[in-house]
Design a protein around this nucleic acid. Structure first.
Length: 244
DNA sequence: CCCTGATTCGC
DNA sequence: GCGAATCAGG
């Protein structure tokens, strides 16, 4: 396999989109994860969150592990230089994707505790003043601002107190299962989206032991496909693959 | 163990 | 330039 323009483009796009080297290698096919990483580095598109830290404690305290240097510095242990013959990877014919339409619905967030506790607190939302001191910082490839050495983002300002307002069922959900109607026996599968006037819940009798009815259990619980059979769900930004 | 990216180095 | 082997952290 050679790095054609198109394969490099795919590599670059997927790499910058956050795909892992394994995923990219799998997508390109007939190539290893190492090849992807190697190529990515040669292309100069390194900056990825690496699980391995470059050990920052070395620059500051270098002399610590260094004993008094003897007149004759013993050379570091040489490398074995013995390389086992590369075992030819079993030929992997391109597996048929066989990816049916992505009919998977995201599991709805469990909505519990329908407590319309309308605390009448008059607490004003206290917004923590964030003094923004101008600082020099470099800009990363993704446009993010790098932290300066030793800099800490500081504590995240606590969420301002929210005033709880009793849900006022709109006319659109008259007769429908609203948040207030939820209990252990009825299906909590959301119909529509929160914020929409007709947002409500399924309300059927639950599949015993589950928060949803039998039908919606079928949506909520699906067999996890092996990693290699999954398609990367996030649609690629950066223009993505040509859809035309 | 699995995963990840980084690096090395023979080719 | 390429990528397997190896390393090292999570």
């Amino acid at each position: 396999m050679s790095w054609t323009e198109e394969r490099i483009a795919t590599l670059t796009r997927m790499w910058e989109s956050g795909n892992t080297a394994s995923q990219i290698a799998e997508e390109l096919g007939g190539i290893s994860r190492n090849a992807v990483i190697g190529k990515a580095h040669r292309l100069g598109l390194k900056p990825r969150p690496s699980p391995v830290k470059p050990n920052e404690a070395k620059a500051a305290a270098a002399p610590a592990p260094t004993p008094a240097p003897t007149a004759e510095a013993p050379p570091p242990a040489p490398k074995p230089a013995t390389r086992a013959p590369a075992a030819k990877t079993a030929a992997t014919p391109p597996p048929a994707p066989a990816t049916p339409p992505p009919a998977s619905k995201p599991a709805p967030t469990a909505v519990e505790r329908p407590e319309p506790e309308a605390a009448d607190d008059a607490a004003e939302p206290v917004v923590a003043a964030t003094p923004s001191a101008p600082q020099l910082r470099s800009v990363g490839p993704g446009g993010f601002l790098r932290q300066n050495p030793g800099e800490n983002s500081g504590p995240i300002a606590p969420a301002p107190p929210r005033r709880l307002v009793p849900a006022r069922p709109s006319d659109a959900i008259a007769g429908k299962t609203s948040l207030l109607d939820l209990n252990d026996r009825i299906c909590k599968w959301p119909i529509g989206h929160p914020g929409e006037p007709d947002f409500h819940f399924c309300g059927d009798k639950v599949n015993p032991g589950f928060p949803y009815c039998v039908e919606h259990c079928g949506h909520a619980y699906q067999a996890q496909l092996p990693r290699r059979d999954r398609r990367p769900p996030p649609p690629l930004p950066y223009g993505g693959p040509r859809v035309r």
